[in-house]
Write a protein that binds this DNA or RNA. Structure first.
Length: 302
DNA sequence: TACAGCTTCCGCCAGA
DNA sequence: AGTCTGGCGGAAGCTG
């Protein structure tokens, strides 16, 4: 993504999903098949890689500044510090493997194994634009990826003396599989519908302009579809309305600035696009349970 | 895809 | 001056 900071200034304050971070500190590699409803329904980021293989159902994954369709056989690589959020129908089954790998583990792999060009797996998986990747696996690739993840999940669940080796071998094969997908870029565009393309453009516009006074009318004028169609499509694909999406994005940026900088609350509200302070305070408290100043004091105090 | 009518919520303002 | 709350009108959003 091209969020302003994560990759250039990794800051603990930016990574508000510190639950995952603490978990990864204790368990650098974690893999689980999940069939429950998605719990994490806010935009978040953490310091580990996340590999997201959808095995049943459908949805959408907001990742960086892009929106990827999720359905059986899609695999998404989410690099550290990239803000993401899955959206799925709350009433339909959605199965996925979620593999998390801490950066320290990846750095260990880089130290042990470097390509002839001097490029490590961390850099390869992160990709040139820092956004990771999104792939459509064919049946054989999907079956192989699922088998690897199932083996890894099983190995991690037991105290087997071979656990580190199984971990290493399954991850290695998975990474090689992913790098093969990287080298076949045409497959990433397969099945990409006009709707997904439009939605991607809309997201790009919203993220590029979130600091401005965005109005629905400006958005609908910019894209060659009707207002009602755009609102409906956005809600259907993301689960959020356009203005809620923008508000959430602004709040995330405000949290980062509150924790990281010395700007006043008023200045931060203005910088992230909240023209109205009372509205900012209201939304912030609703999202965090704290006023902006309380949030800053708490984060910086400990 | 467009429209209309209704509900929700954003942004302006005043004030603590 | 900066932070925060609450009321109100209009814009945004939802749905048939």
């Amino acid at each position: 993504m091209s969020l302003p900071t994560p990759n250039s200034q990794p800051s603990p304050s930016y990574v508000w999903d510190d639950v995952t971070d603490r978990f990864l500190a204790d368990y650098p590699v974690h893999c689980a098949k999940r069939t429950n409803l998605i719990q994490q329904r806010v935009m978040h980021a953490h310091r580990g890689f996340e590999f997201y293989l959808c095995t049943k159902g459908s949805g959408t994954l907001f990742c960086g500044n892009r929106m990827f369709p999720l359905h059986e056989g899609t695999l998404t690589v989410i690099p550290p510090h990239v803000v993401h959020r899955p959206y799925t129908d709350r009433n339909a089954a959605f199965h996925r493997y979620v593999l998390s790998v801490d950066v320290t583990y990846m750095e260990g792999l880089d130290a042990a194994c470097m390509s002839p060009a001097g490029v490590g797996i961390t850099q390869l998986l992160t990709g040139p634009d820092g956004d990771g990747g999104h792939f459509y696996l064919n049946h054989a690739q999907s079956e192989r990826a699922m088998a690897l993840l199932a083996t890894l999940e099983e190995a991690l669940a037991h105290d087997d003396p071979l656990k580190p080796w199984i971990q290493l071998s399954t991850l290695s094969e998975l990474f090689v599989l992913i790098m093969g997908l990287h080298n076949a870029p045409q497959s990433t565009e397969r099945d990409k519908s006009a709707e997904d393309s439009l939605l991607g453009d809309v997201l790009e516009y919203l993220i590029a302009n979130y600091r401005e006074n965005i109005q629905i009318e400006d958005v609908t004028k910019r894209f060659p579809v009707s207002r009602s169609y755009l609102l409906r499509l956005f809600k259907e694909k993301t689960g959020d309305t356009i203005m809620r999406f923008v508000a959430e994005y602004r709040l995330n940026e405000a949290r980062r600035l509150l924790a990281a900088g010395t700007l006043s609350v008023t200045e931060i509200a203005s910088r992230v696009g909240f023209g109205d302070l009372s509205h900012f305070f209201g939304l912030f408290k609703k999202a965090t349970g704290l006023t902006p100043k309380q949030y800053r004091d708490r984060v910086r105090g400990g």
